[in-house]
């Protein structure tokens, strides 16, 4: 009886100690991961042969890893670290090398690369999509959009958008956008429409939140620009700052940027935000 009591006491103490140590290790690991979690992806020249006949599975896994990584960072808006974008580019490039038909990865490259100032890289990846997903109008549409909206190259944009508009299922407005490109400079409205289209096709909650945030920002920008135009039509000149809009009674107050930046007005009457809508 006493013996059994001893054994059980010892066992209980051991389990208790295990609980403590396990908890401690977990905390240490958490700190470690937070500090050192800078991911890298092996180039596809290596992962390709190594993943044998499981290339699809490996691409799924890499995308999953990427999503887990981004999921942790997406709220971490203030950071604008090019290493994050390098990682994004590397992994998405490797994933689409392994499985060149994988739409999720292309969608992410548009979402995370193009919208954080790496439109060139996004286009590099999307060119693969354009090659492999022949009958899909999205790849040329995205590439064209990037040229138009981020890179301000209307000639190339028009070419890609034209290509997209000829593919099955393409909404009519893309054709008209392509046609009008040479006449109009870019409009926030186009960005809103583009993002809404992306929003419609995604199921991922984090990505949805991100899209909604961007749409909200763009809508504010559009709203502010409309007010600036109104100001211009009344006073025949552009306001020097957005405060003028408030003082002249056109708006109640300057709205907050969801990305924690500041809205600015340019010489030509266009409105921007200092955050540039970068999530990092």
């Amino acid at each position: 009886m006493v013996r059994a009591l001893k054994v059980y006491t010892l066992l209980f103490v051991c389990i208790f100690c295990y609980g403590i140590f396990h908890f401690q290790l977990k905390q240490e690991r958490q700190i470690f991961l937070e500090h050192n979690f800078m991911d890298y992806t092996l180039p596809s020249q290596f992962t390709g042969p190594v993943s044998l006949e499981f290339k699809g599975l490996v691409s799924d896994f890499l995308l999953f890893k990427f999503m887990a990584f981004m999921g942790g960072r997406i709220e971490d808006i203030s950071k604008n670290d090019p290493r994050y974008q390098d990682y994004t580019y590397q992994s998405l490039n490797a994933i689409t090398d392994l499985d060149p038909y994988y739409w999720d990865a292309y969608l992410f490259s548009e979402m995370f690369l193009a919208w954080s100032g790496r439109a060139q890289d996004a286009n590099k990846i999307l060119e693969k999509a354009r090659k492999y997903r022949e009958n899909d109008y999205y790849p040329p549409y995205y590439i064209g959009f990037n040229y138009y909206y981020f890179l301000k190259d209307n000639k190339k944009a028009s070419k890609y958008l034209m290509e997209a508009s000829k593919l099955p299922g393409c909404p009519y407005y893309i054709a008209s956008l392509a046609a009008r490109l040479s006449l109009y400079s870019f409009q926030h409205r186009n960005g809103i429409v583009f993002l809404k289209e992306m929003l419609k096709n995604t199921k991922d909650k984090k990505a949805k939140k991100e899209f909604e945030l961007r749409i909200a920002t763009l809508e504010i920008l559009e709203y502010l620009e409309n007010k600036v135009t109104l100001y211009h039509s009344v006073y025949k000149k552009y306001p020097e700052s957005l405060k003028k809009l408030v003082t002249s009674g056109l708006i109640d107050k300057i709205p907050d940027d969801p990305y924690k930046g500041k809205f600015m007005i340019m010489q030509n009457g266009r409105v921007y935000t200092t955050s540039k809508m970068l999530p990092y």
Partner: peptide, 9 residues
Amino acid sequence: VFGYDLGKV
């Protein structure tokens, strides 16, 4: 867990 191409995954 995945976002878009569920059929593929």
